[in-house]
Simulated assay, not measured.
Amino acid sequence: MSIEATLAEKGITLPDAPAPAANYVPFAQSGNLIFVSGQISADENGLITGKLGENVSVEEGAAAARRCGLSLIAQVKAAIGDLDRVARVVKLTGFVNSTPDFTDQPKVINGCSDLMVEVFGDAGRHSRAAVSAPSLPFGVAVEIEAVFEVA
């Protein structure tokens, strides 16, 4: 089944690939790797803001991370046109806006990791880092960057 068919079957709609907010490109390709710049948590209502351990639950953080994942997929689609060319999700690096005592960063970033496996199957399994940040751009709850291998 094609990736587009998988998305349709699961009722997943990709957002438009977000434009960069500063002096950088949304993705860069080197050889068969696509490096996607950090995608911040946002949905159709705007930015998803807040701080884990203060006013955002782990479940809300995971949902925000999933939204970052949708933007990551939208960016790689903008880069290569055909999502069936994705050979593998190589790595995710997730940043969680959280209080100093918050320790569930992996549970938050699972929202994106689970999406990658849901969409790409075994090719969606990846290496990963999930770290805290004392603040993120625009006060968003989560930011995630990714590396994809393409055929």
Rank of each mutant, 00 (worst) to 15 (best):
G81L: 09
A62Y: 02
A87E: 15
V108I: 15
L92T: 12
N110V: 00
V96K: 00
Q75L: 12
A151C: 05
V58T: 15
N32S: 14
V90P: 00
S57A: 06
L7G: 05
A22G: 14
Y24Q: 08
L70C: 03
L7R: 06
E59Y: 00
I12K: 04
P100V: 08
L33A: 10
A123M: 04
P18H: 05
S2E: 08
G31V: 01
S57M: 07
A62S: 13
P20Y: 02
Y24T: 11
Q75N: 13
A28T: 14
A63Y: 04
D84H: 08
C112K: 00
D114R: 09
V76G: 04
T6Q: 08
A42M: 12
V142C: 14
S57I: 00
L33T: 12
E9H: 10
C68M: 07
R128M: 13
L70W: 02
V150Q: 09
V117C: 03
L72I: 10
E143C: 13
C112D: 02
A64T: 00
A146K: 01
P134Y: 06
A146W: 04
D16S: 12
D82I: 03
V108C: 05
I12S: 04
A65V: 08
N110R: 11
Q39K: 12
P106C: 01
K91C: 09
Q105F: 02
R88F: 02
E9K: 14
E60T: 01
V96Q: 01
D16F: 01
E4R: 11
S113T: 13
N45L: 11
S37P: 01
P26G: 02
A79C: 11
E4G: 01
L14V: 10
E54T: 04
G81K: 10
F27H: 14
S135Y: 08
P26E: 14
P20D: 06
A146G: 11
V56T: 09
R128I: 11
A74V: 07
S57K: 04
I40V: 13
V147F: 06
Q39S: 12
Q29E: 12
R85C: 09
E60H: 01
M1R: 11
V76R: 07
Q105I: 01
N45Y: 10
T103V: 14
F120H: 03
S127K: 09
I34Q: 06
A5I: 08
S127V: 10
E59V: 09
D122G: 06
A87H: 07
Q39H: 04
I3V: 15
A21P: 00
A62T: 00
T99I: 03
L47D: 13
V96C: 05
E44Y: 02
S71H: 14
V89G: 03
N97Y: 07
F138K: 15
A22W: 11
A74E: 06
A21Q: 15
L14Y: 07
P26F: 03
F138M: 15
V76I: 15
S57D: 02
S41Y: 00
I40K: 12
R125M: 13
K77A: 12
E143L: 11
E54V: 04
N32D: 15
E54P: 00
V76N: 09
T99Y: 08
S127M: 10
S135R: 11
G69I: 03
R125K: 15
S37W: 02
L52F: 03
N45G: 09
E44R: 09
A129E: 15
A123G: 01
K77Y: 09
A22E: 13
V131E: 14
N97D: 03
L52T: 04
D114P: 00
P106T: 03
K107E: 10
A17L: 07
A129W: 03
E145D: 15
